[in-house]
Design a protein around this nucleic acid. Structure first.
Length: 527
DNA sequence: CACGTCGGAAGTTAAAACTT
DNA sequence: AGTTTTAACTTCCGACGTGC
């Protein structure tokens, strides 16, 4: 089924209208996100309905081919009928593809492998395998899709397939399976961690363009030091939480020596060190604000800010990071001490190399301020953040490591209401694109991230899963106590799973979509 | 306004290259 | 043998020209 531009625009208008209705007006504070589209202070914006994947027939008729006009599968096709060319409306003959043409060695594979090495870690812990892939958000059906970077932890097969599982870290999650080989995903339920702040960001986005030679030099030196002097056991689980956006403009600092065979540990270390080098004080200030007002840390930040002009930027940040990392987990202390030592040594060396004689370090060191897209902290109730990945989806077979996805979710109740009403349901059905996709709808009536176990829908012939309305979930409870209501700026509306029932969907057509909305306080939009 | 032409962007797909 | 990458190949969008 093809959708004309006019129909497409109509659908877009409908969806935009729906989102306008369900959007709540509470302003949202962002943290300078650039990797993820910002929804701050406004209703969710759909991407303009301009670019959609063009549908075309496998084989145009000779007349349409000659005229370079749209054809259809019918013979005669509609265009030939219109112009009275039914007699000559036949499939065009396709040229046979040339054979025996030699190609050079593939290039992209090695590049991607390098990136994957940077983005992933080789630790065996389920909870620590986090990496980032671009997912999709935006509209339903054929409406535009934009990339949304999300964290996708790999998940071990022995626990995959259960409906409610607990990670080593104590976090609970549910599995949302897909039939027929589609990419299943899971929803990770944040566990409140009392008196503990997640210091290490689960991913770091640094602008590659701003990477300085100085930092790279330091990083490379650190790697070599670790390779020779640090045992594998120092590579801790928390380190592997570093992951980076796979988008082109947001990469972790590239290594100079990329082609080493066993890079896993070095990659982890590289990420850790890069994070330490790159983190900005402001980032922590924001993080601390999110973390429900840890006053002592706020003071520390103020102190750091006041002194920042007196200390070379990199060193200042490194020390700051080191201190916090140590607080975060004592297991990192050894690692940090070594890093710190190396960083200091290399910083001094680098500064000597970069400075002209007689200049002070402060005046001559040119360290560009890092541009952090966002800091994504482990989900917690202290940090409901607009930066949290809201929606998720990943094309099947595209990211083979990602069998599951790691997404804090709040579904807005309005979405559910929209689905319930007959009229809107019909609209929604219109928005479904042909038979290519099925629906995973995750309605929510509760105030928070709570989400009930998913069960297959018996009324829907596809592989859709819907929540059971009357079930009460224990998710988002901490030690048996219901968590108090609080502001939650994010929400999820829809998620579509690739593949549908017994229809074969080519890999190129496997896409997922979801809609975005914004809410506050879990209140329903009464309009 | 209808229709023809056509450059080239977008999409498809099969062979080559690569991995397991 | 299976998967991924690449590029040959096709479709058709959209700009433009022409004629009625």
């Amino acid at each position: 089924m093809s959708v004309s531009s006019e129909e497409e625009n109509n659908l877009y208008q409908q969806l935009q209208h729906q989102l306008q209705r369900i959007a709540l007006t509470a302003p949202i504070t962002t943290q300078g996100t650039t990797c993820i589209p910002s929804f701050a202070g406004s209703m969710p914006q759909l991407a303009p309905p301009i670019k959609t994947k063009r549908k075309q027939v496998k084989n145009a008729c000779v007349n349409c081919q000659k005229a370079c006009k749209r054809c259809d599968d019918g013979r005669p096709c509609q265009r030939c009928i219109k112009y009275g060319l039914t007699g000559t409306c036949k499939n065009s003959i396709r040229k046979e593809r040339k054979k025996g043409i030699k190609r050079g060695p593939y290039k992209r594979r090695t590049q991607i492998k390098d990136q994957d090495d940077k983005y992933t870690t080789s630790t065996s812990s389920v909870s620590s395998e986090v990496f980032t892939v671009p997912a999709s958000y935006g509209q339903i059906g054929e409406l535009p899709v934009n990339p949304l970077p999300i964290n996708l932890p790999s998940i071990s097969s022995q626990i995959f397939g259960t409906q409610l599982s607990t990670l080593d870290s104590g976090e609970k999650f549910i599995i949302i399976p897909q039939s027929s080989g589609g990419t299943s995903y899971y929803v990770l339920m944040p566990v409140q961690q009392q008196n503990q702040i997640s210091i290490l960001p689960t991913r770091i986005c640094a602008s590659k363009d701003l990477t300085t030679d100085l930092d790279q030099d330091i990083q490379v030196k650190i790697e070599s030091e670790f390779q020779s002097g640090v045992s594998d056991g120092l590579l801790l689980e928390e380190d592997s939480k570093f992951a980076v956006n796979k988008e082109e403009n947001y990469e972790i600092i590239p290594n100079k020596e990329k082609e080493k065979k066993d890079k896993s540990n070095l990659s982890v270390l590289s990420l850790v060190c890069s994070g330490l080098l790159n983190q900005e004080t402001d980032t922590y200030e924001q993080a601390n604000k999110e973390m429900d007002g840890n006053s002592s840390q706020d003071e520390d930040n103020e102190s750091l800010k006041s002194n920042i002009s007196d200390i070379p930027v990199s060193q200042n940040l490194v020390n700051n990071e080191k201190q916090q990392v140590s607080e975060y987990n004592k297991k990192n202390q050894i690692l940090d001490s070594v890093k710190n030592k190396i960083v200091k040594e290399n910083l001094e060396e680098s500064l000597k190399a970069h400075n002209t004689p007689g200049d002070s370090v402060k005046n001559t060191t040119h360290v560009e301020p890092r541009v952090y897209s966002w800091d994504y902290h482990s989900p917690s109730f202290q940090t409901p953040s607009v930066e949290s990945p809201l929606l998720f989806s990943t094309p099947a077979n595209t990211y083979p490591v990602a069998q599951a996805q790691y997404v804090p979710i709040k579904c807005e109740s309005n979405i559910y209401d929209m689905k319930c009403t007959r009229q809107r349901n019909e609209e929604f059905q219109l928005l479904q694109h042909g038979d290519s996709f099925s629906q995973n709808q995750i309605p929510m009536r509760r105030q928070y991230y709570e989400i009930s176990p998913f069960t297959p829908s018996h009324t829907n012939p596809s592989n859709a899963y819907m929540v059971q309305q009357n079930q009460t979930s224990s998710f988002y409870q901490f030690r048996g106590q219901q968590l108090p209501p609080q502001f939650t700026p994010t929400s999820l509306s829809f998620a579509f799973s690739p593949r549908i029932s017994n229809k074969s969907t080519p890999q190129s057509q496997i896409r997922c979509y979801a809609g975005l909305s914004v809410s506050s306080n879990g209140l329903e939009d009464s309009s």
